[in-house]
Structure formats: structure tokens, C-alpha cells
Design a protein around this nucleic acid. Structure first.
Length: 857
RNA sequence: GGGGAAGUGGCGGAAUGGCAGACGCAGCCGCCUCAAAAGCGGCCGAGGCAACUCAUGUGGGUUCGAGUCCCACCUUCCCCA
């Protein structure tokens, strides 16, 4: 007898011998060669591409479903960590297709950005060349993963066909006053040699390279996202399909605070100092004013005071100049210097000393803070350190703390006002309204709302990005480039050295003529933040070839909004906030209709570790797609990524773990392939006749898996780990059935059903088996197996009998058993009887088909 | 300090308020084999000879019944200050 010990990935499949029954099974178990995933997976990838199984067209007869993964930056090479994200999206896309939805599942490239310039500097490769070759490789790898993207809609943001619409959209923002240039203190990353938006500064460091950012005063382009602050905040309420923590992060970032703004007069100076506070009820407790050293009034004060005092202020200011925001507000000790000047309290008339401090920032609020040490911890610390007066003006409501009692800590809660003139005795909330009204009456202030959100700084002093379509003319000033002159192409010959803006040093680019007067003019040399193009790319997929508009309104009407968006939580504020801003703008322009939110549901996949550690080149634990596709197969990889944890959890790639799924794929193959010919005639819509409990259980396992697939998909929970566990049970039951009754209708039914259940997760083996069952059409174009109640129903259930909540017996009975019969049966059970005899029966609980509980005393 | 998420065997995890630990990994024992690998079958929270008892971070509560709901606390992670 020939023994076929085929190595995985090499040998050919053994021919199915024409023997039946147990002898055949023994032969099949022994003889079936290991599944040759390499050949089979490649063959199906090519077939899907040829057949266009993922190409999406509008179809009024089916409900649309737009599932989207955040578009990747083409860094060069994918590893299994990336694969997790795309596998989740692909499992959803394939499941929804089989459930009858018209699925749109596109992919593209966030192709502008610094790494391409760094490659140019370090290795002399043109950014475009580097980027395009990375895209080619990553596209190959995404295909290798068996993903079902509609590649006919692919976009790369670095192509003129795409970025001309960046420029076009910028001009529309400009026309509406939502794009403007202004000088402001901005975040500067010295390593990347460019400015950064506030959202791109994480803990005081550059989000990309972790270099501490510096502050510089520069003239820069901003987008007026602050105008949308209230709508961005309100919109979060409706986003119930978003993770709560992401909504909370956006809420935090927008940072709405309601309070009052009012001004202090200064002794001997005509200017006034504006302050904003949420606690205007504590205003009688003000004992100092804290100013940012950069505050404009500081210059006026210096004129009033002794030269040596003014010099001290200058030294203090100088010492803070290079310090980052984080250092100044959080890391450094609270420092301050009395200026020698006094303000006048607007209500009490008291003299209030004016200090400059490190913990008040010029760019936030008004750059000045009223110091109320008794009711603010930071002010309290500052007052203690500098021996400033501490005045108690709020006491807990209902208590009677004398104003003179020593103050050990700041009382920061609301309470009742004391020592506050006409407002004494009021509750904090009431006093806030009353005092704001009083300020308004005196015309020195009013109730206002402020936001932490700043305008979005979008200009970058870099090459590999979209040129900003503005020219500067000596006569006409700032002039927008007319639409018909778009795109302004990125010149291929800019000197990329890492020093200075490349475009600024390229006369052939900079020198131009004014579109308005025809005179000599200079082009803007800054390019756009790459978050600009990723804020609207999901609309370009809908109409990628459009040459007259970024997208047509009817394309947006057909597909928007994105039904399910999938990506990392690191973009919780950045990309997801900018996109929401853009979409609201588009909505206002009438370019999209319906809800003014782009992403109806959002899913953050969890991180993937490698053997318990973060995957990184320096740790040497990066598991590549190519490597694992070759070693374990793509189906096993996909199954593992979905199986190891729920998709939103952090999971760990381990050799043992992937081995488990490789085994599973082989078990599927050994179970189904030898029976393929016989399973051909099965119709999975018709339940088979079962003659034994085991057969019934096998068919039930199939339908439990089918139900899990449908439920996890339609409830949008996507816990496919549980669905795959049900598939494990199905295969276990099937393997056992093959051992006893390979010809039973139930066995062949299960064999036939398996690829339908496996298709979203292990698409290749599913289609291979499906074709062996005689189908010409891909399994991915079939309808999902509909779970049937008749298959799920049990002939017999186990009724749990409890006495006082403890399980005392288990009784087999019919699932339809009624309450009276259940009690009678339970009470008659000898084990239960022992717990009931001689006790008073106080209560009986019956949970139909599940449980009886006797409460005795 | 404020807000968000989470804590279940050796490990990853499962469980509409109703038999805790499905499924997988690791481990142990068998079968097969000259042997090994692969495969197949069984065991696998703790204590106890057993009947049983204990067990889902800790302590309370609601309930006939709590991993699940409520309160307080502890720990971890994440955001904001």
C-alpha cells in the first residue's frame, strides 16, 4: 500500500478512491494529503480578480452597504498587524455580500507625506518613485491576503487627478472665508522642519517623530474648524455606532466651556485686561491676575515700572521662550513674577496685583487668568508659594464656615456665596448668571462660551504634498488660483535636502503671473497637511474618474454615508474630527445630502502584538504577510486574526496560535474534500432527514454556526471569534460523523454547507471546496446559509432543577414541556425530593424550557 | 483631579439575569507506528474517598437566582487637565 507523506505545500492531492463506507473513511483519513494551500489560494485570487466579484455598481434592488477601512499610508511592507484591520473589513464585506447587500468596499493610498521625502534625502529616490513602488508592493500584499476590494475605484492621493480636487476644495473653503492666512504662534517640529496642527502634537511632541515641538511665530494657512465647533460637538450625540471613548475624546478635544468674559482696568494704563472664567461666581475671591509673559499689556506695564523690574520680566520671559506648552503648564513648577502694577477689581474696587506666570499661555483664552486661590487648586498653590492673599467667597451650601477660618485646601465645588456684595447668599449657579448680567449692564463683560478647539493649521513647509493654490501679487495681494488653472502640479525637480521648503527654493515654481492683473507674482510655496486629502477620500471612491468635480452629487446620494468605518483609535481626534468638519462643510454646500456625518458606525480594531510585545523591527518580531502566507496560508492567517480575540481587543500573534488554525484548515480539508463528489447533489436549503441524535446534532451545529455568522454581522458586533468557534464545533461533529456514517444525508449536508459558512473568513478553501461540489460560480456570490429554526430546535432539553438557587438535578424532557408538568417532574425527582421533604414550599419559579427553582424555608 | 474602557482556569477567551469556563492553545493519558511526526480518541479551575463544597479583582446591595444589574473600593490601560 503506497503511503503518501506529502509535505505541506508540495504534493498533489490523492485521487479519491471509489470505495465506500468505513473502509473508505479509513483510507481517506490516512491517505488525504495535507491541504496544498499555496497553489489553491493563488488560483482563487486570480479567479476573483478575473470575475470581478467585488466590483460594486449602484443597484436599486438591493440595500447598499459601504464598508471602509482607513486608507493606509504606503510605507512599503505589510505585516500581520496591518492584516488584522483588513481582515476584519473583508470578513464584514464578504458576509454582507452573502447576506444580500450591495457592498461597496474600496481601497486606496494616503500617498503624500514625509517618509517619501526622507527616502529621497537618505537614498536619493524620488518621492514619487518611492511611493509608487510601495503602493505596487502593498497592493500585491493586500491581494495576497485574499481581500475583496473593488480595485476599479482605487485612488492614490499623490496623483494630480486626486490632488487637483484638494486644491479645488481649498479654493471653495477660501471663498467662504473658511481658509485664511494669519501670523500666529505655531507648533514647529525641528526634525521634520515643518509646522504641525494642534491635534498633531502629542504630549508636547511631534506625532510622527516624537521630537519635542517648539513655538514659533509664523504666517500660516488655517482652516476655520472652530466655526463648526458647536456642530461637531452636537453631532457626536447622534453617533451611537461610535465607541463611547472616541466620542468622549472628541468632546474633550473640542473642550466647550461656558462662562463669562470680562475685563479689569489697570491703574495708570488705559488698556484693560480681559479674562475668561467658568467660575465667575468666585469673582469676589480674586486676589491676583496671572498673565502670560507674551500678553500685550505686559509691554505697557513695563513702561510704568522701574527699569530693573522691567528687565527682570524680560529675563523671565526669555527663560520660557523655548519651553513647550507641556513643560510650561504641566512639568515645570508654577513660577511667577510680580509686575508692580495693579488692576482694579470691577465689583469690589479692590487693588489686585498683576503677575506674569509660566502657567498661563498666550494662545489660550485671553492669555490672562483671574487668580482665585480659595477656589482653584492651581491658584491656591501659586498663592501659597508667593504669599498672596486667599479670600474665601464660596462655602458649602448649608454650612456656616466663617470667612476668617483658615483655608487648608481650595474648595472647588459649587456652594453658596459669602463676602460677595449684593451676590452674597446666592447659590453658585444663580450667581454666575447674575454676575454675568451685571457685567453686561456695566458693559465690561458678558456670559460667553469658549472652546479648546483651535483652527486647523494646514500649511506645511514640505515638498511631498498638495501645493496650496494661492499666488501673491505685489499689486493685488493674495489671489486664489482660478479653477481652470488647476491642478498646480508639484514640480518633479525640486531640491529635496531636508533643509528649508523645497518649493520655496525653486524659482521655476515660485515665479508666476498674477491671475488677476497679469503682473509678476509669487506662488505660495507651502503644501497642505496630508490630513486634508484624507478628510474627503471616501467621497472620491464613489466617483473616482470624475474630471469635472471631486464627485458627483448622485454618486454621493447613492452610496453615502459610510455604513461601517474601520480603523485605529489613534485617529480618534485627528482624521475623524477633520473628516467630520469637511463633511459638514460639504453638506452646507449641498454637495452631499442626508445626515451631515460621514461615518455612521465606527469600529476600532485592537492592536496586534507579536509574542507579547509590540511588533517592531528593532525587536525583530515583525511577522510579514508574505512570510506567513507562504508558511501557514492566508486562510489560516485570516482565521487566526479573527479567532484569537474579539476584533476590538489587543491580540497576540504566536506560533502556537497560528498552528491551531493551520490544523483547523487541514481538518476542514480532510473532512470535506474526500466527500466532495458525493456531497454534490445536496441542496443546503432543504434540511436532511436525520436518523440518529448525532446526525441531528451535526445539522444543528451547522445552523448554530450559520446563526452566529448572521447575528455577528447584522448586530454589527463582529465577534467572529465566536462564529469560528461554532465552526470548530461543526467540524468536530463532522469528523466524528465521517467516522461512523460517511454516507448519511446529514454528513453530506454538513460537508456541503461548510464552505458557505467559511467563505467570509477563509475565502480560498471555501471556493475550492465549492468548486469541487460542482459549482461554476464563486461561493462568494452565493446567498449565506439561512439558519433554520427546525434545525436549531432540540428534541430534548435538559431541565435544570434548583432548590433555593442551587442546582440539585437535571432532567431530560421535551422542549415543549409546560409549567405544571415541569414542576411535577422536578418535584418527583428523588434527588430534589430530599431537599424539599419537611420544608415549606414558599415559591416556585419556572423559566420555560430551561429551569425550575423551588424556594423552601 | 475629571472622563472612558476593562478585570473569568496555566494562556487567549465563551456565557438575551437562569447548568460559569463553549472553542482554541499548552499540558497529561491512550490508539495508530519498529519509532517519531502527523492524525484520531479521552482527561484537563480548587478542595474532598464521596455526597458535596468553594470559585468570575475586593466589600456591600437588589433578586427565587448575579460573571452579568446597583453602590463603594482596588488594579490595569486610554484620553483630558
Amino acid at each position: 500500500m503506497p503511503i503518501l507523506h506529502a509535505k505541506r505545500g508540495s504534493g498533489k492531492r490523492a485521487a479519491t478512491p471509489a470505495v465506500g463506507g468505513l473502509a473508505f473513511v479509513a483510507y481517506a483519513m490516512q491517505m488525504a494529503a495535507a491541504y496544498d494551500f499555496q497553489d489553491i489560494e493563488q488560483r482563487w485570487r486570480e479567479r476573483w480578480e478575473r470575475d470581478g466579484i467585488a466590483v460594486a455598481r449602484p443597484d436599486a434592488t438591493r440595500e447598499k452597504y459601504y464598508v471602509l477601512e482607513m486608507l493606509p499610508y504606503p510605507s512599503g511592507d505589510l505585516h500581520v498587524g496591518h492584516a488584522k484591520n483588513y481582515t476584519i473589513g473583508d470578513a464584514i464585506a464578504r458576509s454582507m455580500r452573502m447576506l444580500g447587500y450591495n457592498v461597496l468596499h474600496p481601497m486606496g493610498w494616503d500617498a503624500f507625506g514625509l517618509p517619501a521625502e526622507n527616502a529621497a534625502i537618505q537614498r536619493g529616490i524620488a518621492p514619487a518613485t518611492w511611493t509608487l513602488s510601495n503602493i505596487a508592493n502593498m497592493q500585491r500584499q493586500l491581494r495576497l491576503m485574499g481581500t475583496s476590494y473593488d480595485w476599479s475605484r482605487e485612488i492614490a492621493t499623490c496623483t494630480p487627478e486626486y490632488y487637483r480636487w484638494n486644491q479645488w476644495l481649498f479654493l471653495r473653503l477660501y471663498e467662504r472665508g473658511l481658509a485664511y492666512k494669519r501670523e500666529a504662534p505655531v507648533n514647529w517640529c525641528p526634525k521634520d522642519a515643518t509646522v504641525l496642527a494642534n491635534e498633531q502634537v502629542i504630549d508636547g511632541c511631534c506625532w510622527r517623530c516624537n521630537t519635542p515641538v517648539q513655538r514659533r511665530n509664523l504666517s500660516q494657512w488655517f482652516l476655520r474648524i472652530t466655526e463648526f465647533a458647536e456642530r461637531l460637538l452636537d453631532g457626536l450625540e447622534g453617533l451611537e455606532g461610535w465607541p463611547e471613548r472616541t466620542r468622549a475624546m472628541q468632546r474633550n478635544w473640542i473642550g466647550k466651556s461656558e462662562g463669562a468674559q470680562f475685563s479689569f482696568a489697570i491703574e495708570g494704563v488705559s488698556e484693560r485686561i480681559d479674562v475668561f472664567t467658568t467660575r465667575v461666581d468666585t469673582v469676589y475671591g480674586v486676589t491676583f491676575l496671572a498673565l502670560a509673559p507674551e500678553h500685550p499689556v505686559v509691554a505697557r506695564i513695563k513702561e510704568l515700572i522701574a527699569p530693573e523690574s522691567a528687565a527682570a520680566i524680560d529675563r523671565f520671559t526669555e527663560s520660557l521662550r523655548s519651553k513647550s506648552e507641556l513643560e510650561r503648564t504641566s512639568l515645570m513648577e508654577k513660577q511667577g513674577l510680580f509686575t508692580g502694577a495693579y488692576a482694579i477689581h470691577p465689583l469690589s474696587g479692590a487693588r489686585v496685583p498683576i503677575w506674569v506666570t509660566n502657567y498661563v499661555l498666550a494662545e489660550y483664552g485671553t492669555g490672562a487668568v483671574m487668580g482665585v486661590p480659595a477656589h482653584d487648586e492651581r491658584d491656591f498653590d501659586f498663592a501659597r508659594k508667593h504669599d498672596l492673599q486667599i479670600l474665601r467667597v464660596i462655602v458649602p451650601t448649608g454650612s456656616s464656615v466663617p470667612a476668617e477660618a483658615p483655608i487648608e485646601t481650595a474648595f472647588v465645588d459649587d456652594g453658596t456665596l459669602i463676602e460677595s456684595g449684593a451676590f452674597s447668599g446666592m447659590a453658585s449657579a444663580e450667581a454666575r448668571r447674575a454676575i454675568a448680567t451685571e457685567f453686561q449692564r456695566r458693559e465690561i463683560g458678558k456670559a460667553t462660551t469658549t472652546y479648546r478647539l483651535r483652527d486647523w493649521l494646514v500649511s506645511r513647509q514640505r515638498y511631498w504634498g498638495t501645493p496650496i493654490p494661492i499666488v501673491y501679487c505685489n499689486d493685488c495681494g493674495e489671489v486664489p488660483v482660478p479653477d481652470e488653472q488647476l491642478p498646480i502640479l508639484l514640480p518633479p525637480d525640486a531640491p529635496i535636502t531636508g533643509e528649508g521648503s523645497p518649493l520655496a527654493r525653486l524659482p521655476s515654481f515660485i515665479e508666476t503671473t498674477c491671475p488677476r492683473c497679469g503682473g509678476p507674482a509669487r506662488r505660495e510655496s507651502d503644501t497642505m497637511d496630508t490630513f486634508f486629502e484624507s478628510s474627503w477620500y471616501y467621497l472620491r471612491y464613489l466617483d473616482p474618474q470624475n474630471e469635472t468635480a471631486p464627485w458627483a452629487r448622485d454618486a454621493a446620494d447613492a452610496w453615502m454615508n459610510v455604513d461601517q468605518y474601520i480603523g485605529g483609535s489613534e485617529h480618534a481626534v485627528l482624521h475623524l474630527l477633520y473628516s467630520r468638519f469637511f463633511y459638514k462643510f460639504f453638506h452646507d454646500c449641498g454637495w452631499v445630502s442626508g445626515a451631515d456625518e460621514p461615518f455612521a458606525r465606527l469600529f476600532h480594531q485592537g492592536m496586534l502584538l507579536s509574542n507579547g510585545e509590540k511588533m517592531s523591527k528593532s525587536r525583530g518580531n515583525v511577522v510579514g504577510i508574505d512570510e506567513t502566507a507562504k508558511k501557514n496560508g492566508v486562510d489560516a492567517m485570516r482565521l487566526f486574526l479573527l479567532y484569537v480575540t474579539p476584533p476590538e481587543d489587543t491580540s497576540d500573534w504566536t506560533d502556537e496560535g497560528i498552528t491551531g488554525r493551520v490544523r483547523f484548515v487541514n481538518r476542514v480539508w480532510r473532512a470535506c474534500e474526500p466527500l466532495a463528489a458525493r456531497a454534490r447533489s445536496v441542496d443546503v436549503r432543504t434540511l436532511p432527514v436525520c436518523t440518529t441524535p448525532e446526525e441531528k446534532a451535526l445539522v444543528r451545529a451547522v445552523h448554530l454556526a450559520a446563526r452566529s455568522l448572521v447575528e455577528e454581522t447584522l448586530t454589527r458586533r463582529f465577534h467572529y471569534n465566536t462564529t469560528i468557534a461554532r465552526l470548530d464545533e461543526t467540524i468536530n461533529a463532522l469528523t466524528a460523523a465521517i467516522g461512523t456514517s460517511p454516507d448519511a444525508a446529514a454528513t453530506l449536508y454538513a460537508v456541503h454547507a461548510v464552505p458557505l459558512l467559511l467563505a467570509p473568513f477563509a475565502p480560498h478553501i471555501a471556493d475550492e471546496l465549492w468548486s469541487l461540489y460542482g459549482y461554476d460560480r464563486s461561493v462568494h456570490l452565493e446567498a449565506a446559509l439561512a439558519p433554520q429554526d427546525a434545525a436549531l430546535a432540540l428534541d430534548e432539553i435538559t431541565l435544570v432543577v434548583q432548590v433555593n438557587g442551587k442546582v440539585r438535578a437535571r432532567i431530560a424532557c421535551a422542549p415543549s414541556i409546560g409549567e405544571a408538568d415541569a414542576f411535577a417532574l422536578a418535584q418527583a425527582d428523588p434527588a430534589v425530593r430530599g431537599y424539599l421533604d419537611g420544608k415549606e414550599l414558599r415559591k416556585r419559579i419556572y423559566v420555560p424550557g430551561k429551569l425550575v427553582n423551588f424556594v423552601v424555608g
